[in-house]
Amino acid sequence: MARAHSTRRKVVTTIAAWGVALTIFFPVLWMILTSFKTEASAVAMPPQFLSADWTLENYATVWARSDYPRFFWNSVVIAVGSTLLGLAVAIPAAWAMAFVPGRRTRDLLMWMLSTKMMPAVAVMIPLYLLFLRFGLLDTRIGLVLVLMLMNLPIIVWMLYTYFKEIPGEILEAARMDGASLWNEIVYVLTPMALPGIASTMLLNIILAWNEAFWTIVLTTTKAAPLSAFIASFSAPQGLFYAKLSAASAMAILPILIMGWFSQKQLVRGLTFGAVK
């Protein structure tokens, strides 16, 4: 819309949009800034922005006092593992729902989503006992299983919406061309749905990475990921803001960086495939 006053309007909206975006981002920025301050500088009043004493010491301390690489590696294994396992189970299911829909497909999908509504605390005790019984407590495989099941409905739903965009005729063509079901999924469906699958994968890695209930309840030390590590770190108030911030930054930076690098797929994934 070309308007006479469009330049002025553009300046105003630009300033407003940047103001809002920076406000939303500010808490993260402030945490990162704090993580580079000395403890005294971190709690100084009035707050110090540029005049603070900058240091890397907090990171060194957190690194020395905790076993960061292990937590990090656990997070990676659990997030990626549960997502890949989930995809392996969900791709066939989403194929079936999208391309061979029956009368009950919709209900089935809604039922799957409704399992996500089951509050985790409601099954905390039984799950804890089951884990105890089967020796899964504080193991990565146990967490991979739980997070996979927890996010499976979301994965199925997202893939379903992406698959629905693919015209059924192309899969029929593959069938006419002599492709078996397996070949149809491997050579035609999966490559065509790759952007959607990537988005689903990214979103679920984030959801699993940030999961902070089961990871706390079901782990102690061996298999604890970063979300459990950070929960163990938030102890005495105010005494070490800078170190707390450093630990927090170390917990979220990997995913933040991954998210920013894969922004395009992620934005698509963040909408859960539900909006085009």
Partner: peptide
């Protein structure tokens, strides 16, 4: 096919 159904 009507839509050609080529593999894009």
């Amino acid at each position: 096919f009507q839509s050609y159904a080529l593999y894009p």
